[in-house]
Design a protein around this nucleic acid. Structure first.
Lengths: 246, 246
DNA sequence: TAGTGGTCTAGACCACATT
DNA sequence: ATGTGGTCTAGACCACTAT
């Protein structure tokens, strides 16, 4: 990365991670960082605002910035992609397509994907495994214009996100996630190996391209104990979300 | 708000909310906004980066910014405070303290609150209602230094956050939330009026002051159907979280 | 090729926290 | 009183998108 502000942000993340700036301690002033890195104050502010958005530091006018956490928050990619998240945590992702059918979109699906009513969509049921164990059941609806590319993927495709990018250049850029809890239904219990009625963490998400065009909408159900969703937030900065192992 | 960048951000939020910039459409260029508002480009960039952090718009180098969503995301305050969230959604919050005991911190509690082992803490069990219905059971551990102020609050205190601020000037500034699903235990089922073993959405959170000093740590269990957690995120911008009614 | 957003500079002034 | 972060300006150059 040649961008100066990214370099400075990375240097600060490392300094925080290895304890040179302990939790509860203060960061150097903007002026000092600017001089040390030979950049203007604006560039330093760009760097620290990234850490602030990640929830690692907090700041108040008039006082030095404070270290809040040593853990760097994870990226959108890791929130979006099961495979990328799994690998980031040192686990082995796997998966298998159980069903894949084309049909007309239901009313609410067409609305979520911003499609005309009755448009063709692709409905996929997929189980995902972590180190061989099933932990997630995905019911995904893909917009018709990407359906062919999705169906060309192998049934045990490890990373759908990566494969779609490689094959078609498609980038997932934005997502909205609704999280709640539901009782396992018959299909859920069979596929995830839990009792019917036992609690599952449900994430309903819709993902779009950089231009804001919806690509997919999914109902994902996680086996409890396997996955925790973490959100860090702040009055001042922008919160950040990540998916983590319990 | 006298800050120019906030004014511009608010003007853009309104323009998006009332459809002058529809979802999928483009925003005016930075240069145009700068001229229109009589400010420099830097101030415009500050304004749009706020909307970006809220997930309302996306941007790509070389192309105009795109509107992703009309819904303004909610603030940290609403994520943190049940009462503030409820009122923001047009509901009436209520609640009652069921138990309140002082005791020595457990090992993991002391660690979460950054206290010495065996420090005094205050353990509170509180049920929260929305329009009279119980929807949330909170098991909160407060650090000893704030325990007196918490115990002085009335049992049916509507907003603990607001009252603590009024009484002691305490501000909650940062939070970390871990979300998963659990089966209702005996206490949960009695207090929330659900069957034992039925799914609950659990949020374990720790909140700190602006200086990063932990104040409280809580295990919150939501009755399903009453509450959904929403996270919006992006490759480029910073994700944002909010709590919303189903 | 023209327009747009991303990066960076070098200043200025203000509000707030600390001492 | 001094230092610090928050706001704002007026420029410059570059990388990328669109046409």
């Amino acid at each position: 990365m040649t961008r100066r502000h990214e370099q400075i942000a990375e240097a600060l993340r490392e300094a925080i991670a290895d304890g040179r700036h302990p939790v509860g301690g203060a960061l150097p002033s903007e002026a000092e960082l600017a001089e040390r890195h030979g950049v203007s104050r604006g560039t330093v502010r760009q760097a620290v605002s990234a850490l602030q958005a990640e929830g690692m530091i907090g700041s108040r006018q008039g006082a030095r910035r404070v270290v809040l956490s040593t853990a760097p928050s994870q990226s959108f990619a890791e929130l979006r992609s099961f495979a990328q998240w799994a690998r980031a945590g040192g686990h082995t992702p796997g998966g298998r397509v159980l069903e894949s059918v084309r049909c007309a979109a239901r009313v609410e699906e067409a609305a979520l994907l911003q499609l005309a009513p009755q448009s063709q969509v692709l409905r996929v049921l997929r189980v995902r495994t972590l180190d061989g164990e099933p932990v997630l059941l995905e019911r995904t609806v893909y917009a018709g214009w990407i359906a062919d590319a999705v169906q060309r993927l192998p049934d045990d495709c490890e990373s759908v996100t990566q494969s779609l990018y490689d094959d078609t250049g498609l980038v997932f850029a934005h997502g909205e996630h609704h999280i709640d809890a539901v009782a396992a239904g018959t299909v859920d219990s069979q596929r995830l190996g839990v009792r019917r009625g036992s609690p599952l963490l449900r994430v309903r998400r819709t993902t779009t391209t950089p231009e804001g065009r919806p690509v997919e909408s999914s109902d994902d159900r996680y086996r409890p104990g396997s996955v925790v969703f973490t959100v860090r937030n702040s009055t001042q900065a922008n919160p950040l979300a990540r998916l983590g192992r319990d």
